[in-house]
């Protein structure tokens, strides 16, 4: 049997304890984050789990003003694309910045990686508890200014 070295649940648990985890490939040296079953660059399974520095640079962003079901109370919010120092990109919420005041000057800004729980009203996205709401293990990656 083939087994994940770092499934999403362990990735999220590490993230909640302040650690951004991913892979370094022993074949080509590239980094993969978030994890997948093999290297994002060369598809080798010969990878080791490593802790990332957790620092990135904003490459692009948007402000969501019409939200999906479950995210109504969050509007407006910023979703951004950021590149980690190790190379991979992440999609996350830019937090600590007023969505109504953000400008294109944010592109290129350095951020650190964190997390926030998924809004409790969101459905269909993971394990559902007896109360009908999702269990708190679903998280979103966040970016905050350094």
């Amino acid at each position: 049997m083939v087994t994940y070295k770092l499934p999403h649940k362990e990735f999220n648990e590490a993230l909640k304890s302040g650690k951004l985890m991913g892979f370094k490939c022993n074949s080509c040296g590239a980094y993969t984050c978030p994890p997948k079953i093999n290297c994002n660059e060369c598809a080798s399974m010969d990878m080791e789990v490593v802790e990332f520095k957790g620092r990135a640079e904003i490459k692009s962003y948007t402000i969501i003003r019409v939200s999906p079901e479950g995210f109504e109370s969050e509007v407006p919010y910023i979703v951004a694309l950021a590149q980690l120092e190790e190379g991979p990109n992440l999609v996350g919420n830019l937090v600590g910045v007023d969505p109504d005041k953000v400008t294109d000057e944010i592109i290129g800004i350095k951020v650190k990686i964190g997390w926030k729980p998924a809004p409790p009203e969101v459905k269909y996205c993971g394990p559902i508890g007896k109360d009908g709401k999702i269990k708190p293990e679903m998280v979103a990656i966040t970016f905050s200014l350094m």
Binding site: K59, S60, I64, V79, G92, N93, D104, M138, A140
Partner: peptide
């Protein structure tokens, strides 16, 4: 869904990010 869905990203959002890029 696991690594980007919970940010509340929408499809207009995807192409909004693309526009800025």
């Amino acid at each position: 869904q696991y690594y980007e869905g919970m940010t509340g990203l929408t499809f207009p959002g995807v192409f909004a990010i693309l526009s800025r890029l």
